[in-house]
Design a protein around this nucleic acid. Structure first.
Lengths: 337, 337
DNA sequence: CTGAAAGCGCTTACAG
DNA sequence: CTGAAAGCGCTTACAG
């Protein structure tokens, strides 16, 4: 009946001893089942749990039940705002369903991605949400086939996996259309290098052609601030360049704004800008970016729901979530949000 | 001798059967010990592991050995760039030592922080690195006393815990001194609300007084972009305000730059700015921010080393890591980095 | 060099 | 309503 003073963690055996019951009863009380427990006994057990500070050992539970109540999440770079915002959204969606999230960073490297997949699998996560840098991630042979997996931020069907992504084609079309609505006739494109983003390029092009406008200039660059900066210098140096640009990510737009700043050009007066993503950073650029916002929370919730739905009626399913145009000042609107 | 086709995960028993050895030998081969194994037997086991795709069940290992090879990391907001950059640094430092990191988000809430601490503890992490929003985090009663814990981003001694933080006092002094060196005589302070940051305020003040300058105006605000924006409006609206400002975080400086932009003021021509932290975002503001950079990698490595050093010779230890002044253009230097 | 056995902490079907 | 027992997959001291 005394509180143990050794540093070893408290186990249900300690609780059982303290409460004067069997270890089974401790479990019944902790889980409120599957066997009934007399009210008075339960109260004694709860008191023991409180006094001793008992928490069930998650490893033992995972081993016994086969479920770790953890979800794995693979992101390319956790220090990229889009991924960190998505990771937070996944964490919240998972928490709402009683799951912790084990976040693994692949550092944008395909080999590390595979390795992280393996360690998540070894850690017995109940499901894995993968946001891959690869257009067609090679996932098949790397994980326990018993672990459900969904692809998040994927814009096309991947055989054997459910995938969830924003409707990038339509989002890009609407973002470009907004620039057209402002009256700009020449609209360039700053586009990141990657097959999976082609839909943004197609959306931009569709909008232009539907309006009977010529294709604007395209500059391709890496998917970060530095890339956008270089693209901006290439597109606008020497006074050339289009009157407006659609940019494939907010971070690239941030780099583009730097290039314009250095070139002595002003947005939106000299160059109007609309970009894709809608991260928090885009709210505080000067001018504030008009963005095609990815509905990060909805995407995360859909991914968690999907990976937890063990039945998996249609593995080929592609779930396209609509993006939303959020007006700022960079397009010429001068809305304040 | 056939590959199992059921979806159940492969266990060492499957490997043993396939290789025609006992399960002990499988362990000996996997861990290269503690008993020797004949070269030919080992080769057969390795082949079986490869063919079957075996990976040891981490839950079972954790239960058996008492070590999960996971470190817990608590951050207030993972979608704040400073915390996400720190989280990545911790992940890298931990990976270099064979540890995965379980990242837990407290959403800046003290109660959630305690709850996350408990779940990390229940998950049998081998150590916890806490970056608390609280000046004096109440950690004592919430975790298994057997789990080592260090405080990261803490600038003062906390009884019973090792803590690691940047030398904020000196960093702030040097950042302010740099503005003084530029010749500014009136230097304001934009300061976040929190006791633990007072050192930045003291550093700013020390620099001013050492130079025989009067204290500049102080505006206090929340520790984010919105806070910096409001502080900027308050400090500079109506044409008033100091010629230079030291800002307690990059994000607040981003908000301040927005306020200046809206007020038609230019940095550094009208107002020079130096801020604290050195996140990636600060590289791409217009103008580029001059920052007192926190050595995130060094801090993360120190925290991981400390939490993994089980001996713990001096729990009261406070490890202060020096910050580094990184020049940009917002102070008036016009260095490009 | 190899294998049988105990035990980490837990859950749950089974017996009472 | 309560408890004794099996077993999840692993590691490792012990015996051979």
């Amino acid at each position: 009946m005394s509180v143990p003073t050794n540093p070893r963690a408290v186990t249900r055996a300690d609780v059982a001893r303290y409460a004067g019951v069997s270890t089974s009863v401790v479990s019944y009380v902790v889980h409120d089942g599957p066997r009934p427990v007399a009210a008075e006994t339960a109260a004694r057990v709860r008191e023991a749990i409180r006094v001793l500070g008992y928490r069930p050992n998650a490893s033992a539970q995972a081993l016994r039940t086969g479920s770790s109540k953890m979800l794995g999440l693979i992101v390319p770079e956790l220090d990229n705002p889009f991924w960190s915002e998505l990771a937070v959204a996944v964490t919240h969606a998972a928490a709402a369903r009683g799951y912790d999230v084990l976040i693994a960073n692949s550092d944008g490297d395909a080999q590390q991605e595979r390795e992280r997949l393996r360690t998540l699998s070894a850690r017995q996560v109940d499901g894995i949400i993968v946001t891959s840098i690869m257009t067609h991630p090679d996932l098949s042979s790397t994980t326990d086939p018993g672990i459900p997996m969904v692809l998040l931020n994927t814009f096309f069907e991947v055989p054997e996996y459910a995938s969830i992504g924003v409707d990038a084609l339509r989002g890009a079309r609407e973002g470009t259309q907004h620039l057209i609505d402002h009256g700009y006739r020449e609209i360039g494109l700053v586009m990141g290098h990657t097959g999976s983003m082609e839909l943004r390029e197609q959306g931009w092009m569709q909008a232009l052609r539907a309006a009977g406008l010529p294709d604007g200039p395209i500059v391709r660059c890496s998917f970060d601030r530095a890339g956008g900066y270089e693209a901006g210098l290439r597109m606008f140096d020497g006074g050339a360049g289009p009157r407006a640009v659609f940019v494939s990510s907010d971070l690239q737009a941030v780099g583009l704004l730097r290039a314009l700043y250095e070139l002595g050009l002003r947005a939106p007066d000299d160059v109007a800008v609309v970009s894709f993503d809608g991260v928090a950073e885009a709210d505080y650029t000067n001018p504030q970016l008009t963005v095609v916002r990815q509905p990060v929370e909805a995407m995360a919730a859909a991914a968690v729901d999907r990976v937890l739905a063990r039945e998996d009626p249609d593995a080929h399913h592609l779930d396209l979530v609509p993006a939303e145009l959020v007006l700022g000042a960079s397009c010429g609107c001068d809305v304040r949000r």
